[in-house]
């Protein structure tokens, strides 16, 4: 079994408030393990606690109770030194929703260099990392451009390059595709998949697009601060009723097949794509024809 890079043990979190009575827990006794090299999609409607969870893993927030293990070591806010803290943060990158609010420099390559510069990497190596990162996201020819000349999807890829240049083991995407047009979304998603497949980066992709979640190895559904469903995309999306009850959509084809199934036809529950759906129906009809002609 692969190494566990993030382990949440009975984690609860609530935002501080002046009135203890209105402290509603955002995360509620959450337990989770993320394996090294996996591509995990996190689904949940607004306010389910999915972004808060990401911020805990990235050490922006600290849990109110429970234990967080990063790379096999328990994270303890009291004893961690500043250098250890930044070393952990460097290993867990995070890309946010609005690309504009992540870029700090007026020139693309200067922005990508920002992270390594903060780490105190020698200049020649920064150059190398920046070129490599821009190559991975396919934005090399825009190195000398200014961010405001780029489209949303391109800016988001620059933001990803800025994280790649830190050489993290895990990258958390916090609804990084939500503000983009379809073209930008598919470019960003292709970049995410490339990072996972080719470079073995562990990916935690927070989204509310079903089509994106389907492409992950594992899907986690979060509702009211705890995990509702956890499994492969096919397993998770076969729970159409549960997903609908927490305000999430399921792929249309999965839902269609489920409805037909409920009318007494024996069709599979875990169909995700249109091709699979069409094949399942065709198989069913052929089978039936074979049986009736016999």
């Amino acid at each position: 079994m692969a190494e566990i890079v993030i382990k949440a043990e009975d984690i609860s979190f609530s935002y501080e408030s002046d009135h203890p009575a209105d402290q509603i827990p955002v995360l509620n006794h959450l337990n989770l393990e993320i394996e090294k090299g996996s591509f995990v999609a996190v689904l949940g409607h607004n306010g389910s606690g999915k972004s808060t969870m990401a911020k805990l893993f990235n050490l922006i927030l600290t849990p109110t109770s429970g234990n967080l293990y990063l790379f096999g070591k328990k994270f303890d806010e009291e004893t961690v030194t500043e250098d250890e803290f930044f070393a952990l943060r460097q290993r867990i990158g995070m890309v946010f929703q609005n690309p504009d609010n992540q870029l700090v420099a007026t020139i693309v390559e200067e922005d990508v260099a920002f992270g390594p510069e903060n780490l105190g990497v020698p200049p020649a190596e920064i150059r190398e990392r920046v070129d490599a990162a821009l190559e991975i996201v396919g934005m090399k020819e825009f190195a000398r451009h200014s961010p405001h000349q780029l489209s949303g999807g391109q800016k988001q890829r620059i933001a990803i390059a800025g994280i790649i240049a830190l050489r993290p083991d895990i990258i958390i995407f916090d609804e990084s595709t939500a503000m983009l047009d379809p073209r930008g979304r598919s470019d960003v998603l292709a970049t995410i998949e490339k990072l996972n497949r080719e470079f073995g980066t562990t990916i935690l992709h927070i989204t509310h697009y079903m089509e994106e979640a389907i492409r992950a190895d594992r899907v986690i559904v979060i509702d009211s601060g705890s995990i509702l469903l956890d499994g492969t995309p096919a397993e998770v999306f076969s729970n159409v009723r549960t997903l609908k009850s927490v305000g999430l959509d399921v792929p249309q084809v999965t839902e269609l097949l489920l409805e037909i199934r409920e009318d007494g036809f024996n069709l599979p529950k875990n169909v995700l794509s249109y091709e699979e759906g069409a094949r399942a129906i065709a198989d069913y009809l052929n089978q039936k024809k074979g049986r009736s002609s016999r």
């Binding site: 990235n58 990158g93 992540q102 992270g115």
Partner: peptide, 10 residues
């Protein structure tokens, strides 16, 4: 948001 993103980039 920018401050958080900068913190994330160490």
């Amino acid at each position: 948001e920018l401050a958080t993103a900068m913190e994330c980039r160490c």
